[in-house]
């Protein structure tokens, strides 16, 4: 015990008056350069420009065959031509209208399924059995059946789109509803919310992060399915007139004609539509809702 250090008792003190802190740097503004280089958009734009420059320089110096990798400039020109003269925008519109039709009908069916699943245990069992079976089934695999049942045309594509939207949306919404906290449910009932009002004013906002995630996954699957289906269609119907096909068909047809800059132009368009939906539409919804409410799912 003797070599254990003992408590050293010191006199107490209390500061009667606290001195002013003198460094002027308690909160300094960052310099202009620091702030500009902190802006994500600026840094990302720089990277984008660098990549494009690299591409252009590589294709110019290495004399790579334009059939393998066209120059950026000729791709950009092809995109301009396609948009201005060859009605690429109409084809994009063809794709998007089919996509929207499939997505909305899918949402309606998913809503019915989720309602059944949330109100009754039997419905919940049906939903989980169906999703467990059908969610892992790529929608595109149903296209041969859809062609058989609905013939060549928008109906067959919409059928496969439905399949790609319904399961992820219904599954996520159901999980969202199920995981609304018991406390929030009790609060809602405490203030007399019942039936549809209870669902609309309490359950849906409380489950919104999950619902939104389902909507995003559903969109991603539908977009992929649509492009793939149009590529398949390209193979099945070669006599489609130019403006009646969609974006996938544009890519397919130009690849067949070895118009590689146009293939790239089509890919750019696919990226543009995708970036627009994910980074503009969904981001806008997220900023207005779950992010403002501090509810974003991790």
């Amino acid at each position: 015990m003797s070599n254990v250090p003992n408590i050293l008792t010191r006199p107490e003190f209390e500061a009667s008056e606290i001195g002013k802190a003198v460094t002027s740097d308690v909160a300094r503004k960052l310099t202009l350069f620091e702030r500009i280089s902190d802006m994500h958009s600026v840094r990302k734009l720089t990277i984008l420009v660098l990549l494009v420059a690299l591409w252009e320089l590589y294709t110019r110096w290495s004399e790579v065959s334009p059939l393998i990798l066209p120059r950026f400039s000729s791709t950009a020109y092809a995109l301009y031509l396609a948009v201005a003269g060859e009605q690429l925008l109409i084809m994009v519109w063809n794709s998007v209208t089919v996509l929207i039709a499939g997505y909305i009908i899918g949402l309606v069916i998913a809503t019915i399924l989720t309602t059944a699943a949330t109100t009754t245990r039997f419905g919940s069992d049906i939903l989980s059995t169906l999703t467990a079976m059908l969610n892992p089934l790529p929608a595109i695999a149903l296209l041969p059946l859809a062609l058989l049942w609905f013939g060549l045309g928008a109906d067959a594509i919409i059928f496969t789109l439905l399949h790609s939207v319904i399961w992820p949306v219904a599954l996520n919404a159901h999980v969202g509803f199920m995981s609304v906290s018991e406390t929030q449910r009790m609060v809602g009932r405490n203030y007399g919310l019942k039936g549809l009002i209870y669902v609309g004013k309490l359950l849906i906002p409380a489950a919104f992060p999950q619902i939104l995630m389902g909507l995003k996954i559903g969109w991603a699957y539908a977009w992929r399915t649509l492009i793939a289906a149009e590529l398949v269609f390209g193979g099945s119907i070669s006599d489609t007139t130019e403006t009646s096909g969609g974006l996938g068909w544009f890519i397919f047809a130009n690849q067949m004609d070895l118009q590689i800059p146009h293939v790239f132009a089509g890919l750019f368009m696919v990226i543009l539509v995708g970036v627009f939906v994910e980074n503009v539409i969904f981001n806008f919804i997220e900023n207005r809702t779950v992010r403002r409410w501090g509810m974003q799912a991790r």
Binding site: T183, R189, N190, Y191, G192, L202, P205, A206, G294
Partner: peptide, 27 residues
């Protein structure tokens, strides 16, 4: 359940996160 007996819970998530402080009360 009814609004003649209002409950205050222990859990912090009893406030509806999608409503502001004032909106929680007016709700």
């Amino acid at each position: 359940p009814g609004p003649d007996r209002v409950m205050v819970f222990q859990e912090f998530d009893q406030l509806l996160p999608w409503k502001t402080v004032k909106q929680n009360i007016t709700f």
